[in-house]
């Protein structure tokens, strides 16, 4: 039963992605990108990654949409008579070739949800974190344990990246955008 929800969500995500790509009005594309993010976050949640779903909802559908809207409010948006964008055949060919190359690898991948897939069944890595994270860190949520304890310095580096991005944004805009 759950796979039908998943298939319907997959169709939803694909449709929103195509609509985002083809709409010429940038504001409409942003609105549809928000819908795409919602669908994608729902898909992450369905694939049992609630932390990722929550982050994607807040950052993809919330922060990114607001940043794009702020940009639109400060710049121009093309207002043509056409609704759809003109299709660029060369870019379409390049992306189609990429999709075909990646699509050929599909039979080599394990099925979605296969418990024997190496990434979930390899005891030395996944099994270690699942069985030892509470004893090592005192956190029940393994994702949090790995993020904040086992790979704490990595997360610190990530915070540095966010700080650097904030500084770069302020330097580029010379503080004018915040008014």
């Amino acid at each position: 039963m759950i796979e039908y929800v998943a298939y319907a969500l997959a169709v939803f995500v694909v449709l929103t992605a195509v609509a985002t790509a083809l709409l010429r009005d940038v504001l409409a594309a942003i609105v549809l990108f928000g819908a795409y993010s919602l669908g994608m976050a729902l898909l992450y949640t369905l694939l049992l990654a609630p932390d990722v779903g929550l982050t994607e909802a807040v950052i993809g559908a919330g922060v990114t949409t607001l940043l794009l809207l702020l940009t639109i409010a400060r710049t121009v948006r093309p207002s043509g008579d056409r609704t759809a964008e003109r299709v660029d055949p060369r870019a379409l060919f390049a992306c189609g070739a990429l999709a075909v190359v990646f699509g050929l690898t599909l039979p080599g991948l394990p099925a979605v949800g296969d418990p024997n897939a190496p990434i979930v069944s390899y005891e030395a890595v996944t099994g270690y974190y699942l069985s030892n994270s509470y004893a090592d860190t005192g956190v029940e949520n393994t994702v949090t344990a790995v993020l904040a304890a086992y790979r704490g310095f990595d997360t610190f580096g990530e915070a540095t990246v966010v700080f650097g991005a904030g500084v770069a944004t302020l330097v580029v805009l010379r503080r004018e955008v915040l008014t």
């Binding site: 039963m1 759950i2 039908y4 929800v5 319907a8 969500l9 169709v11 939803f12 449709l15 929103t16 609509a19 709409l23 409409a28 609105v31 549809l32 819908a35 669908g39």
Partner: peptide, 19 residues
Amino acid sequence: LGAAAVFVVLAIAVLYRAV
């Protein structure tokens, strides 16, 4: 779960208005 699937299908239908 069936109701969830119906809701996703209705969401796809509403997507027409968004496009």
